[in-house]
Design a protein around this nucleic acid. Structure first.
Length: 860
RNA sequence: GCCUGGGUGGCGGAACUGGUAGACGCAAGGGACUUAAAAUCCCUCGGUCCUUGAGGCUGUGCGGGUUCGACUCCCGCCCCAGGCACCA
């Protein structure tokens, strides 16, 4: 009776089995070693895409593998449920963000279950649930008490037409994505988290996370951007006050000939107040504010500035320095003012040439003589100080300390450390987010909501139009409240929190997902599960999400809520799944099924194929995995994603190759079913007696495959090479001469190979392997033990030695694995083709690499 | 622009710390089986040259360098991707 591989039938059967038996439900078990495996939870956009399938398949393989290795595995899943797309859907399709989000969650949950992922669904959470965000509000209150949450003025993108705040994503080339008007900046009083209070610890631990990819730590270190320098104070020429600057190049201070201030710095308008240039300066500042911040500081962008009709004095030379406002100076780094040294900084050089400002050389390199008349660019290298008073003749790098000391001695500066990292702005003027638990009272100012009044629940009945600023601010019953301190009428804070706040602690909440007692996290359970042993997610989160989660963890530790310094011991950053974008001139970005034969299905216009970018809903370049599952099954979708490329690499999507994955599963299925009658009653071979010939070779291949697959999964997460190793083993089984039905020893070896194939594939393709396992008469595979290999059985008896002449392969010889090195050299020189080619030439050198090759270097 | 990665056949990729480049798979071509098709099985498959061989040369984005030997290390370019603080 031939049984055909029927994916949907067996997949649904085993999914039901896992669900009803609650196979993947976990509880704390002090007797077992825990393993917390977490994949970054998804935003419920409506449908899972290939990026999710890839991410969650990788995680599921590791979870199931660790389970087979005997760990108590926590593998939860939830929803990053607040965010802008729900609000956009509400505006475009008049559906409430809550309804939209919950529908999406239901659909995506169904899709994830159909993939057969081994989640403990009892721990599911959605961040838009008040039972979740109430604890976030509690943490906010604690942060406020400790000064870690504070308010300050900062800018937002503002569309004057829609009268609303825009996200960076909603600004396209400086214009509003909805109405096309020019986007400006507006100052608002907003909430910030003082991440800078933890900057040193965040930086220091970058060297204490050996389980993180080096490149992520490098990116984080650069983002934090610690630099050593000094603050110098430049007194105003009129004696009224001084301008502080931060510099790492105090060695060039004797060459500072003018002062630059960021255009948006308040000092700019202060200095020109009631001067004749006031109007011109205001126009300039307005113009600069509209320029793109990224572009303004770029090397090739035109440097622009305006004289403020004011002077300060160089603190070491006393020279009068004109003060300019400039477009390329950043207001939020350092003090927002920089001393300009045109001879040794390229930007300052270009600025000085443009506005005809003086140059003084203060560093002289050894290989050329700098001349201010003939210089065509700044000299940014090192050299010896000149025109620098008492420091003349010193090497500039050695003078850094001395000059900083000198500034300190004359009371004009001090050494200091500067960071690029800024505090985390968490205020959003949006509806679909966690409310900030604060009340604004005319009498008492900003007053926290009392802990017992939490949660501050997001009201349901709001109107979303996309215009007129925050919808919450227009919702009277929400806004109007009583001041918790004085009882008089007051207004609620209507800003909601950045969704990165929810994702900064969800991994803690998973440890005690339904805990309803303050502070919402059960310390005993946190202590059992945390930290996350393996965190898996996209490389696009390398900086922001991961840095915020690290900060939040340290803060919760200091609140006594959690007991770990860092949330994630090991991190795997998977590459993006990318695909080309398609755009219709009329309808904008199009989904793949909205394009037929290069034309838009709605308007029949020609489609422009755009750049290949990471799959995302806003670019609509997504692939729906449902069709894959329907046509081939979840196991094929899983193994295809795993086989296509190693996880950390970007994957450019193509439909090719799925057939091959499906064919391999069929091939595996067929050989097992084909052998079934002969091996059902046979015990797997376990080395009871010595083997020879084909049997010995097959068994060797089996144990070599266990070794390779274990190494590939455990140490490298390289599932693609693990799969090809199993493919080779299956190929070997096909080529193996079929033993007679009564040859019990040969069938025992076959059974060992068959079981090995099933066990090695179990974490990757759990459904087909469960089915085959049960056909063999075995109990459930999810709890089976990972196979072990025998080093002796796996070792080769013969090895191939490559023979090179002058580094080029000329021949090969086969020798016993334990052959002596000298004998291999002799054999190499004597080998027929080698002997012919080196005849009459002089052998200069012989290189022997044990068990690999012999290289013979010859000369004519 | 800045920070971080990446670039290997027609395609996805392999090659562990400098030691056989192209494992495994896809696509393609040829053959077997079949009334036929599908499925399956077998063979070929980087380029190029000739004397068609157990052949020579060449080949890992481009240009240099180090080495007995470089996809791998160093220097300089080009291209692609991710992030750049309100997409998540």
């Amino acid at each position: 009776m031939e049984k055909k591989y029927n994916p949907s039938e067996i997949e649904e059967k085993w999914q039901r089995h896992w669900e009803t038996k609650k196979i993947f439900k976990v509880t704390e078990d002090p007797a077992k070693k825990k393993y917390y495996l977490l994949e970054m939870f998804p935003y419920p956009s409506g449908r899972i895409h290939i990026g999710h399938v890839r991410n969650y398949t990788i995680g599921d393989v590791v979870a199931r593998y660790k389970r087979m290795k005997g760990f108590n595995v926590l593998h939860p899943m939830g929803w990053d449920a607040f965010g802008m797309p729900a609000e956009n859907a509400a505006i475009e399709h008049s559906i409430h963000p809550s309804a939209w989000t919950h529908e999406n969650i239901e659909n995506m949950k169904r899709q994830l279950k159909r993939m057969g992922f081994s989640y403990d669904w009892d721990r599911e959470l959605a961040t838009c649930d008040p039972e979740y965000y109430r604890w976030e509000q509690l943490f906010f209150l604690r942060m406020y008490e400790k000064g870690l949450a504070y308010k300050k003025s900062s800018t937002v993108n503002w569309c004057p037409q829609c009268r609303t705040v825009l996200a960076n994503e909603q600004v396209e080339a400086g214009l509003c994505w909805r109405c096309g008007s020019e986007v400006g900046e507006q100052y608002l009083n907003q909430w910030f988290f003082r991440i800078t209070a933890y900057v040193e610890e965040l930086l220091e631990y970058c060297d204490k996370l050996p389980g993180w990819p080096e490149r992520v730590l490098t990116m984080q270190k650069n983002w934090i951007g610690k630099s050593y320098g000094c603050e110098a104070s430049f007194p105003m020429a009129d004696g009224k006050g001084a301008i502080p600057v931060f510099t790492t190049r105090q060695d060039t201070i004797f060459g500072a000939t003018f002062m630059l201030v960021a255009a948006e710095h308040p000092l700019v308008m202060d200095l020109v107040q009631e001067k004749s240039c006031e109007g011109a300066v205001r126009d300039f500042v307005e113009k600069i504010k509209k320029q793109d911040k990224k572009m303004r500081t770029s090397e090739y962008y035109e440097k622009e500035g305006i004289f403020l009709d004011a002077y300060c004095l160089n603190p070491v030379t006393g020279r009068k320095m004109p003060i300019y406002a400039a477009n390329f100076v950043l207001a939020d780094y350092g003090t927002g003012c920089v001393m300009a040294v045109p001879t040794h900084d390229q930007r300052d050089f270009e600025f000085a040439r443009k506005y005809d400002l003086p140059l003084i050389v203060v560093i002289q390199p050894s290989d050329q003589a700098l001349n201010v008349q003939t210089m065509t660019e700044a000299y940014v290298g090192n050299g010896v100080l000149v025109n620098s008073g008492p420091f003349d003749g010193m090497e500039n790098l050695k003078a850094l300390d001395s000059i900083a000391d000198h500034l300190e001695a004359i009371g004009r500066g001090k050494k200091m450390v500067q960071y690029r990292l800024r505090d985390w702005g968490i205020s959003r003027q949006r509806y679909w987010g966690a409310p900030i638990p604060m009340v604004l009272c005319d009498e008492c100012g900003t007053v926290p909501v009392p802990e017992n009044d939490l949660p501050v629940v997001l009201p349901k009945d709001v109107e979303l139009t996309g215009e007129g600023g925050s919808p919450l601010a227009r919702h009277k019953p929400f806004v109007e409240t009583a001041c918790p301190r004085c009882g008089r009428p007051a207004r609620r804070e209507t800003d909601t929190m950045d969704t990165f706040v929810e994702s900064s602690w969800y991994f803690d909440r998973f440890c005690s997902a339904h805990y309803g007692i303050k502070p919402g996290l059960d310390r005993a359970k946190i202590d059992y599960w945390m930290p996350v042993d393996q965190y898996i997610g996209g490389i696009e989160h390398a900086i922001l999400h991961l840095l915020y989660a690290r900060f939040y963890t340290k803060m919760l530790r200091d609140f006594g809520v959690v007991g770990v310094d860092e949330p994630f011991t090991n991190l795997l950053t998977q590459g993006m799944v990318c695909k080309e974008t398609m755009r219709c001139p009329e309808h904008g970005y199009r989904f793949p099924d909205e394009v037929r034969e290069g034309k838009c299905t709605q308007c029949d216009r020609g489609i422009q194929i755009g750049k290949t970018e990471k799959m995302s809903k806003s670019l609509k370049n997504v692939v729906d995995p449902d069709y894959l599952i329907k046509a081939y099954g979840a196991d094929t979708a899983r193994i295809f994603c795993l086989f296509a490329s190693p996880p950390e690499k970007d994957l450019e999507w193509s439909d090719q190759g799925v057939d091959g994955a499906f064919r391999f599963l069929n091939r595996t299925w067929r050989i097992v079913v084909d052998y079934l009658d002969d091996i059902r009653k046979v015990t797997p071979f376990a080395g009871e007696e010595p083997l020879e010939g084909d049997l010995k070779a097959l068994r060797r291949k089996t144990h070599q495959t266990i070794r390779k697959v274990t190494f590939d999964i455990e140490d490298r997460f390289h599932f693609n090479t693990a799969i090809s190793a199993v493919m080779e083993l299956v190929n070997a089984l096909y080529l193996f001469p079929r033993p007679a039905a009564d040859d019990r020893r040969a069938l025992a070896v076959v059974r060992e190979t068959v079981e090995t194939v099933i066990l090695l594939l179990a974490p990757l393709v759990p459904h087909i392997t469960e089915e085959l396992w049960s056909l063999l008469g075995r109990e459930t595979l999810a709890d089976a033990a990972w196979p072990l290999f025998d080093t002796t059985v796996a070792s080769e008896e013969e090895i191939t030695i490559v023979i090179q002449i002058n580094g080029k392969v000329r021949s090969r010889i086969s020798v016993p694995a334990d052959e002596d090195g000298d004998r291999i050299r002799a054999l190499a020189l004597a080998e027929e083709r080698i002997a012919r080619q080196i005849a009459g030439k002089k052998v200069i050198k012989e290189v022997y690499v044990p068990k690999k090759l012999v290289n013979i270097v010859v000369k004519e």
